[in-house]
């Protein structure tokens, strides 16, 4: 009898709690988790988004939380350890995916997240000296004749390796901890090619090099593309490109109605002209992909990265 009473009370409590929570979502605070420390690019953009876009989240407060560590996997594990209630959002880059794909015994699989959209995406642009490689064809011909060194951070080298492999060629990939070091070595003539983001490419082109190819699957903003001399994209040669998104996701067990509600609010925020203007002024324009587009691109990206990582090792 006592057990029945307790069960009835719990059932009553749940029947009250669940619909109320679903109706009220979101209320209170949404924790916006990034897997990097304070002060970096992701932190800066997340805080900018929280400040500019909070009004689109139904009165909820966006609270940026830094959970750095373990190659950006600590933040991912933190999200999976939180209640799947739609109040913890994960905003990351390809860094934790690269970490997980590099590990033999990874603590989590890259599929253990529900992708709800892309906020931005950066590309790996190959910058070369024009007198050495005036165009893509001459570059591929040179790759087949002699060893060519390409320097960049691990993520950007993956973009390069992905298209070069599809061109049936190979190169020597030289990993760097920072773009500053790889660009210095490119300008000093110590490496042949620099794999850089489009914003770094803008500082090199046209004085010290040309943009040979945009290895991304996503087109550059028009003004950036023009400033870089409209480099060809991977798809222009029939290749599958690789973009490096700032993706947003949730615990995969989160109720569907909450994920749908969040995705809609996120879309409204990311396409708000005031928000996009703030990001453009910040040097990283919003490149928004909605839930369906982002989920499809994310799956393709993980598969492409899985193959490309083998090319670097």
């Amino acid at each position: 009898m006592k057990t029945l009473k307790v069960t009835a009370l719990v059932a009553a409590a749940l029947s009250w709690a669940v619909p109320a929570a679903a109706d009220d979502y979101p209320s209170g605070t949404i924790n916006w988790v990034i897997p990097f420390g304070a002060g970096g690019g992701s932190d800066r953009l997340s805080r900018l988004f929280a400040a500019e876009a909070e009004r689109h989240f139904g009165g909820a407060r966006l609270n940026v939380e830094n959970h750095p560590g373990a190659g950006a996997v600590t933040g991912w594990l933190h999200v999976l350890n939180q209640p799947a209630d739609g109040y913890t959002v994960f905003n990351a880059t390809p860094t934790p995916i690269i970490t997980l794909l590099s590990e033999e015994d990874a603590p989590v699989d890259p599929s253990q997240i529900e992708i709800l959209g892309y906020l931005a995406a950066f590309a790996s642009v190959l910058v070369v000296r024009e007198d050495e490689f005036p165009d893509w064809d001459s570059f591929v011909a040179a790759l087949q004749e002699r060893p060519i060194t390409i320097g960049g951070t691990n993520a950007l080298l993956l973009g390069a390796a992905n298209v070069i492999d599809q061109a049936g060629a190979d190169a020597i990939y030289v990993p760097y901890a920072s773009t500053g070091e790889s660009v210095t070595d490119f300008l000093g003539g110590h490496i042949d090619v620099a794999a850089v983001t489009e914003s770094t490419a803008l500082t090199i082109v046209p004085e010290n090099g040309i943009a040979l190819i945009n290895t991304s699957s996503i087109a550059l903003p028009e003004d950036v593309d023009d400033a870089l001399g409209n480099p060809p994209m991977a798809r222009d040669f029939g290749f599958t490109g690789l973009a490096f998104p700032r993706w947003v996701g949730m615990h995969p067990d989160t109720p569907e109605e909450r994920m749908a509600a969040f995705a809609a609010m996120f879309e409204a925020a990311a396409t708000d002209p005031e928000v996009t203007a703030a990001f453009a002024a910040g040097g990283e324009p919003i490149i928004f992909l909605n839930r369906e587009e982002a989920a499809a691109d994310y799956e393709a990206m993980v598969n492409t990265m899985r193959n490309a990582i083998g090319l670097l090792q």
Binding site: P68, G69, A70, G71, V73, T74, L77, I98, T99, S102, E103, P107, N154, P175, L312, Q313
Partner: peptide
């Protein structure tokens, strides 16, 4: 170079 964890004694928090 390879981005693979080393000397971490299987502890993920030592990966960085």
């Amino acid at each position: 170079v390879s981005n693979v964890a080393r000397n971490t004694f299987g502890q993920d928090w030592l990966r960085d």
